[in-house]
Design a protein around this nucleic acid. Structure first.
Length: 572
RNA sequence: CGGGAUGUGGCGCAGUCUGGUAGCGCGUACGGUUCGGGACCGUAAGGUCGGAGGUUCAAAUCCUCUCAUCCCGACCA
């Protein structure tokens, strides 16, 4: 490609609304432009990279036996009503009506559509295993789109769905996809980690997220320093041995009410009463799809809403607002406590051995000290309900764990029969019995993968594309285009490389050397070949690797061979 | 949905407090000098000051409403 003909508007300045590096660089490198909040246009360079990722995904999907299909973006409400998700999915689901007033949505995911297809077409155990996938745009009306392609409202996703006769076979499909995902992200040149994850609104029994490790990641993950355990913070289990009873030995104190005017937060309470956060019990009120619940955690712990939701087995869970708290506890937020509460109370396991706790009095400006479970209040269930902290131990091997941040680029789920049951997708087995198909679903955020790759591979000058994702492998920079020799040498090399299958960008613009260098660094082509009149006199051209910055003079004669060799080496 | 901020040539911003000729840098076009790390000189084009209403002799500037964007929070694959 000739740079002079390429639609590649690079920016010298950083756009003011671009927060993170990948967003800034994608704007500056002329990959994307914003149309409106969370909606982007992909320019030729950006699209080229997306296609690279898509190609890798398609190759690995096909290798794993998946077949490509394409489903519609627009989906009828009735399918979502049938699965029950029309009501569960929040405002994120973009709903609208057609001219006849019939309700539709723009698909944020495609479990409903694919299950509908399969229940019609897959009738026998002979038709399985079956894995179908598509690469298609999804729409999620995010509350707050941000970080460019990282969290847009419209984004491309590769979603695959597996259908099997039973759990055992489904596990094999899951395994296949899991392996394919590892290969995909390896081929993209990313540093990533597969972590255990919560299943969220998708549902199902078991899932892994593929996380690209990056400081700007929106998700917190914990990884064990010793064994292979890694999990999303939401999912991460607390080591059961963390709370020892002996810490709380001693006689029961009487319960007394103390005045704590305007003292609400854990920090304020501990300071005001001179106690440790570990003596405090926090009472958090949740509203759920069935009944309100009070959750107790120790003062120095944070409640994990995902765990609460799973324990209760409810579809939806939400932190109660001020009014609800006032109504249920009789006090404004900050003074809630377990004593005298009439709603269901569950507690984190760390609360179980606690004695003489400090808690809210359910009365404005009062706390209770010396409260004891059994005497002053009852807890209906103890469970692991809190977030892991950096001082927690690995739940598997007991060794230290690290907290990191990651960008979720892929997610694999075992769905079991959730959707096939809801949409009655059944098949007939060898013995003539009707059974539900067992499903799995597997997503990759395609655009987000590109953003993550840039987040992980850049320096102060611009992007450093992993060679498999680079839009071009080589960029040729003739420095003096009015010099016949220079341009001739550049053109010759360009032709030689192109005809031998290399992806080459020739910067044939009439620009000063500095401009060309800066743009080349910015767009991050792995190999740069500089042709200047001085070195050309010695029959040499300069080759520089974007990744290492190392330059090398090579003979102009046979330069194409040398460069092709370098490309091959980089791509392997 | 709550809190905060910002909307001024294509991009980045000043001007707003204290009302009085709409500015700067970059970019763009043309001419010239330059030419291996975002050159220099000159000339030029380009602005409903987000929108509506109001106050005033006079509004980018003050007031009211509204829209959009961004940040923080809540929420969420």
């Amino acid at each position: 490609m000739r740079y002079s003909r390429l639609f590649l508007p690079t920016l010298r300045q950083v756009p003011s609304d671009a927060e993170i590096v990948s967003h800034q660089l994608m704007m500056r490198a002329g990959m994307i432009r914003k149309l409106t909040s969370g909606i982007y246009i992909h320019l030729p360079l950006g699209l080229c990279i997306i296609k690279k990722v898509e190609t890798i995904i398609r190759e690995e999907m096909e290798k794993a036996g998946a077949q490509e299909i394409l489903m519609p973006a627009m989906q009828p409400a009735e399918l979502w009503q049938e699965s029950g998700r029309w009501d569960i999915y929040g405002k994120e689901l973009l709903r609208f009506k057609d001219r006849h007033g019939r309700p539709y949505c723009l698909g944020p995911t495609h479990e409903e559509v694919i299950t509908d297809l399969v229940r019609r077409e897959v009738r026998s155990y002979r038709d399985m295993p079956l894995i179908l996938y598509q690469i298609q745009n999804k729409f999620r009306d995010e509350i707050r789109p941000r970080f460019g392609l990282m969290r847009g409202r419209e984004f491309a996703m590769k979603d695959a769905y597996s259908f099997d006769v039973d759990e055992e076979a489904a596990a094999k499909s899951y395994e296949k996809m899991f392996d394919a995902y590892n290969r995909i992200f390896e081929r993209c040149g990313l540093k990533f980690r597969a972590v255990e994850a919560d299943t969220g609104t998708i549902g199902g029994s078991f899932s892994h997220e593929f996380m690209v490790v990056a400081e700007t990641g929106e998700d917190a993950i914990v990884t064990c320093t010793k064994c292979g355990y890694a999990a999303n913070l939401e999912k991460a289990e607390v080591h059961p041995g963390y709370a020892r009873k002996e810490e709380y030995d001693g006689p029961d104190a009487p319960m007394t009410k103390v005045s704590t005017p305007n003292v609400r937060t854990v920090e304020e309470v501990t300071q005001f009463l001179s106690v440790h956060p570990g003596q405090l019990v926090k009472t958090i009120i949740f509203e759920t799809s069935s009944e309100p619940v009070a959750v107790l955690v120790r003062g120095d712990h944070e409640v994990n809403a995902a765990k609460v939701k799973n324990i209760l087995g409810v579809d939806n869970i939400e932190l109660a607002d001020e009014d609800t708290v006032l109504k249920l506890t009789g006090a404004p937020a900050g003074f809630a406590g377990p004593v005298g509460l009439s709603i269901k109370i569950i507690a984190d396991r760390a609360v179980e051995p606690m004695k003489n706790m400090v808690a809210g009095a359910n009365e404005r400006d009062f706390h209770l000290v010396g409260t004891n479970r059994g005497r002053d209040f009852e807890v209906s269930e103890f469970a692991d309900l809190r977030l892991v902290t950096s001082s927690d131990r690995c739940p598997r091997c007991g060794m230290a764990m690290e907290l990191k941040r990651g960008i979720e680029v892929g997610h694999v789920f075992r769905l079991g029969d959730k959707y096939s049951k809801a949409l009655s997708s059944v098949y007939v087995d060898q013995d003539g019995n009707e059974r539900y198909t067992i499903m799995g679903c597997y997503g990759i955020g395609v655009w987000r993968t590109v953003a993550a790759a840039i987040e992980q591979n850049h320096d102060k000058d611009g992007i450093i594309f992993p060679p498999p994702l680079a839009p071009y492998q080589v960029e040729i920079l003739p420095l003096q285009i009015q010099e016949g020799d220079v341009i001739a040498a550049a053109e010759t090399l360009y032709d030689q490389l192109s005809t031998q299958g290399a992806e080459v960008l020739l910067d044939d613009r009439d620009e000063r050397a500095g401009v060309k260098f800066k743009d080349a660094d910015l767009i991050g082509i792995p190999i740069r070949v500089t042709i200047g009149k001085k070195s050309l006199k010695n029959g040499e051209v300069e080759v520089r690797l974007r990744s290492t910055g190392r330059t090398e003079m090579i003979q102009r004669e046979g330069a194409d061979r040398v460069i092709l060799d370098m490309i091959r080496k980089q791509l392997s």
